[in-house]
Structures are given as structure tokens and as C-alpha cells.
Amino acid sequence: MRMHWDAFVAAVQERGAYESRHEAERAARVVLALLGAHLVGEVRAELAARLPETSALILLNPLQAHEPLPPERFVRATAAWIEGATEKTAAWDVSAVLSVVAEVAGDGLMDRVLFQLPPDYDLLFGHPRAS
């Protein structure tokens, strides 16, 4: 069963210890849009199917990255999209959102998502891979 947007945002708010729902929702929208630009094909569609409908629409937005950003540049891009964010706060935002995404996705799909991304994204998802 698909998670509702309110439950997703509440999970992000709790995970990120955001004072307001607005902050959690803003982080979720930015991070999901950037993530969606990095995923393609069935993996992107399957992840979208597991996420709330609102976030699925954000994830499936036709933005496409010219090249996959390494994790540190993904965090910098997040900071650039969130008004007043620093790299440190953006890293927090990314971690809060992607850890909830990893929980919703489950291990099998997460392995396929991480296969499409540059090395070390597993840490952003809070889903470290064994070396």
C-alpha cells in the first residue's frame, strides 16, 4: 500500500527534527526532484509507485541530470535550491528525506536505486553497503 504524503512528510519532519511541517515538505520536494533527475527506467517508476502520489509526481518530473552528481555535489545542489541553506543543513535535509525513501523502498529496490547512482550514495540514504 502506498504511503500518504502527510505520513511521508511527518516521517521526514520527525527524522530531520524540523520545527515545522513546511520545512520538512520543502526539503522533501527539493531532494526528491534532484533524486528523480538521477534515476531512469523501471527503477525510477517502481520507486515512484511506492512513494506517496505527490512525491511520485515530483520524482517523475522530466528533469534529467546531464551527468550523475557525486554525493557531495548532490548535497551542494540541494543547498542551492533551498533558500538560506548551507551545505551542512542541506546534508541534514538530504539525509532526513533519503532515509525515509530508503525505508519506503525496501532493501531490494534500494540495491537497484544505488546501482544507478555514483558511489557513496548509500551513506546519503543511511543505507551503508558492506565493503
Rank of each mutant, 00 (worst) to 15 (best):
R2M: 14
V75C: 00
A91V: 11
T78S: 10
R29T: 12
A130V: 15
H38K: 04
A27Q: 03
G16E: 11
L51A: 11
L63V: 10
G41A: 07
F115D: 14
P52K: 04
P71W: 07
A27P: 00
I82N: 04
V75Q: 03
R29A: 13
H4V: 15
R21Q: 09
W81Y: 11
F115R: 15
A37Y: 01
A130P: 02
G16I: 08
E19L: 14
E83N: 06
E23W: 00
L57M: 08
F125E: 14
V31F: 00
A33H: 10
R112K: 06
H22V: 15
F115I: 11
I58F: 03
E83I: 12
P128W: 06
E67G: 13
Q64M: 07
A27Y: 01
R73F: 02
F8M: 14
Q13A: 10
A49K: 05
W5P: 01
Y18R: 04
S55L: 15
D120I: 00
Y18E: 07
S55T: 13
A96E: 00
V101S: 09
I82A: 02
E87M: 01
L98H: 06
A37W: 02
H4P: 01
V30G: 05
P52H: 04
P70I: 05
A91K: 15
D122L: 08
E67A: 12
L34F: 00
A7V: 12
A91R: 15
H38P: 07
R26S: 08
L63W: 08
D111R: 15
R15V: 08
A48W: 03
T54H: 03
E23Q: 15
R50Q: 11
N61L: 08
R76M: 12
H22L: 14
P70R: 06
W92S: 14
L109Q: 02
A77I: 03
L47V: 00
A37G: 15
E46R: 15
F74A: 08
R129C: 02
R29S: 09
F115C: 04
V101D: 11
M1L: 09
A28P: 01
H22W: 07
S99T: 15
L117S: 07
T89L: 13
A65V: 05
